[in-house]
Amino acid sequence: MDISRQSSAEEVERGPRARTRRLMLETASRLMQSGVTPSVTEAAEAAGVSRATAYRYFPSQAALVQAVVDEGLGPILTWKSDAKDVETRVDDLIGTSLPRIEAYEATFKAALKLSLDQWARRQAGTLGDEPRFTRGHRVDLLKDAIAPLKGSLSGAQFERLAQALSLVFGVEVLIVLKDIWGLDGEETQSVARWAAAALVKAAMVAEM
């Protein structure tokens, strides 16, 4: 997703401060899982935390949403594969990621809503100095998945394959295949994995 990677929870102080931050995260996560994209103030009120305290941990809505999204992504962010075959690596990434994304579907859709809302306000010139919520973890993950092809594809071909695979990886896949086509989670994953394999094969054939 272009989300900037944040400091891990381990870097936050332990004790009451850590508990307050965790409470804010859990509250914001609960709100996002219900379909709401909370402001820092709204999350603070729901958590019973003062606004001043909340803003010390999350200085903007974008920072709060980024933290919740990273929590939702969880093990996806540390995905690695020892496989040498690119098709296997890509299939493993999608097979690992989509069930997790579906489990936190409402959270990722709420984050997408914020991204689209900011885009609309930026187009209208009303976003002001509000920090931008960006999405982009998928870029690094997909490039890692197809890394064995770096030596056989040109730089442009490598980038294009990663870009094409990004179309079948992420919450947008659920929006298209579940919301529009009415597929269930298992069917959605099957289509996404099939499409990813087809893209990898096409890139490898073009290279030959």
Rank of each mutant, 00 (worst) to 15 (best):
E102I: 08
F169A: 05
V139N: 13
A110K: 14
T27I: 13
E42L: 15
D179F: 02
A44V: 07
L165R: 06
E207P: 00
A203R: 06
A62E: 00
R17G: 15
E42C: 06
M32Y: 02
S60T: 14
A110W: 07
K109M: 10
E26Y: 01
V171Y: 13
L161D: 05
L23C: 00
A18E: 07
K150N: 05
K143L: 01
A145M: 07
E13S: 02
R160W: 03
L199V: 04
A197M: 08
R160I: 07
P75K: 04
I94Y: 07
V90M: 10
V168T: 06
I146K: 09
Q33T: 08
V12Q: 05
K113W: 01
A46E: 12
E87Q: 10
E45S: 09
R56K: 14
A192N: 13
D144S: 14
P148D: 01
V86N: 08
L183H: 06
E26M: 08
I175W: 05
R122L: 10
V200H: 09
T20D: 05
K150R: 15
L114V: 14
K178R: 11
L177S: 01
G136N: 15
A145V: 11
P75R: 03
E11S: 15
A18G: 15
E105C: 10
L167I: 00
V168Y: 11
A52P: 00
P131Q: 05
Q189F: 01
Y55Q: 03
M1R: 04
P99W: 12
R89E: 09
F133Q: 11
A103C: 02
A195P: 02
D2N: 15
L141T: 14
A162F: 10
T41M: 06
E207H: 04
L25S: 02
R30Q: 05
I101G: 07
V173S: 09
Q33E: 14
V90G: 06
K109P: 01
I101M: 15
I146E: 09
I76F: 09
K150M: 09
S8N: 06
A192M: 10
D184W: 12
Q33V: 07
I180N: 03
K84V: 12
T37M: 11
E102M: 03
S152N: 09
I146H: 04
M204V: 09
M1G: 01
L31P: 01
P131K: 05
Q157W: 08
L127D: 15
P75A: 11
A110M: 15
Q33W: 08
L167K: 10
Q118A: 10
L165P: 04
S97L: 05
L98W: 09
T188I: 15
E159Q: 14
I101Q: 07
L77P: 06
S8L: 14
L161K: 08
S50V: 13
V36Y: 01
W194P: 00
T53F: 08
D85L: 08
V191E: 04
E102H: 12
R30I: 00
L23M: 00
A202G: 03
Q118S: 08
A195W: 06
G35Y: 15
L149W: 12
V65L: 03
E13W: 02
R51C: 03
G136Y: 13
E10M: 14
M204A: 09
L31C: 12
S60G: 01
E13Q: 01
G136I: 04
T78N: 11
S81W: 06
P148S: 00
P131T: 04
V191P: 03
V171P: 04
S190D: 14
Y104D: 13
R56V: 10
P99G: 14
R89Q: 11
A147Q: 11
A63V: 12
G125R: 02
L23N: 05
